[in-house]
């Protein structure tokens, strides 16, 4: 039961970045491999503001999210927009290059050792059969609230509707007068900020190393493919399943080092049986 609790926490923490990654993949039509390292980078920025400059924690998070959003737009302008005409596979290679630039920048600046934020240590509370710290409770609450906010944004605002139209059919949206350029920029802003927040959440419940982002990226992609690429609800379902199953595998000590392998085994089975994912459409994204 304790493991189920850990699984639910892991799933809830993965849900938010997984949703944003799904949104990014759906709108920009490629898998962004630099996403995980962008999460890690934002978590390190918070570390910089919080520990090195001594700002208080919420202020450093907000500052870092703004920087992450700006970086996202810069990545889009400098790298991904000019390469779009070469097709999704070249974009993937470029994002691999970007991922390694970010990863090694983290390594060069902050070194390979695990880092911790300057926040008080908390003891776990017992909630029935589960053990949870107050910070984890807050994070899960925030994660669900922001997930709801993103869905509301897509459903009820003008830019959200434009985003959905662009994702469905870029040419048709352009013809109908949707400013698709603006849509792409907003997609990168929203997804980068959300990625950053996801990175901070991860750094809060685990430790922060330059490899955190890359490992998380693998979990996110298994969640995405399991749920169905381009389906936002699918991304949430996938994140919960991957989180719960990979944490529950920790019961067997032989499987404990292989959480990521479990996540990938699930994805592998999914690709064999139902390549479009649990909730995905027939032709992917």
């Amino acid at each position: 039961m304790i493991y189920l609790g850990f699984g639910i926490i892991a799933g809830a923490i993965l849900a938010l970045p997984s949703l944003a990654l799904s949104l990014l993949c759906r709108n920009c039509k490629f898998f962004n491999l630099a996403y995980g390292d962008q999460m890690g980078l934002t978590a390190y920025l918070v570390l910089f503001f919080n520990v090195s400059l001594g700002l208080n924690f919420p202020a450093s998070v907000i500052l870092s999210l703004i920087i992450s959003a700006i970086l996202g737009v810069i990545f889009y302008w400098v790298i991904f927009k000019p390469l779009r005409r070469h097709g999704p596979l070249v974009l993937l290679i470029a994002s691999l290059g970007l991922a390694f630039v970010i990863h090694n920048s983290e390594l060069a600046i902050w070194g390979p050792n695990p880092q911790k934020y300057n926040i008080p240590f908390e003891t776990g509370l017992r909630l029935g059969p589960f053990i949870i710290t107050p910070i984890q409770l807050v994070l899960i609450g925030l994660s669900f609230a922001l997930t709801g906010a993103i869905f509301a944004l897509l459903r009820y605002t003008g830019i959200g509707r434009a985003m959905r139209a662009t994702a469905d059919n870029l040419e048709l949206a352009t013809i109908r007068g949707v400013d698709t350029e603006m849509v792409f920029i907003w997609t990168w802003i929203i997804c980068s900020a959300t990625a950053g927040l996801g990175g901070v959440f991860l750094a809060l419940i685990t430790t922060l190393t330059p490899w955190t982002g890359f490992i998380t990226l693998l979990f996110l992609f298994s969640a995405l493919i399991l749920g169905g690429v381009g389906n936002l609800v699918g991304a949430l379902v996938g994140a919960m399943i991957i989180g719960i199953v990979s944490e529950c595998a920790g019961i067997l000590s032989a499987l404990a080092p292989y959480k990521i392998a479990i996540a990938f085994a699930i994805m592998f089975l999914c690709l064999l049986i139902r390549p479009s994912g649990i909730l995905g459409k027939e032709r992917g994204f």
């Binding site: 898998f31 999704p88 490992i215 298994s222 990521i260 990938f264 994805m267 592998f268 690709l271 390549p275």
Partner: peptide, 21 residues
């Protein structure tokens, strides 16, 4: 077996994960 009949992106994701595993 599972990846080559799908879009090229899936192969990329699966290989990156298998290498890490």
């Amino acid at each position: 077996i599972p990846t080559l009949r799908l879009r090229g992106d899936y192969l990329a994701i699966v290989t990156i994960g298998v290498a890490e595993i």
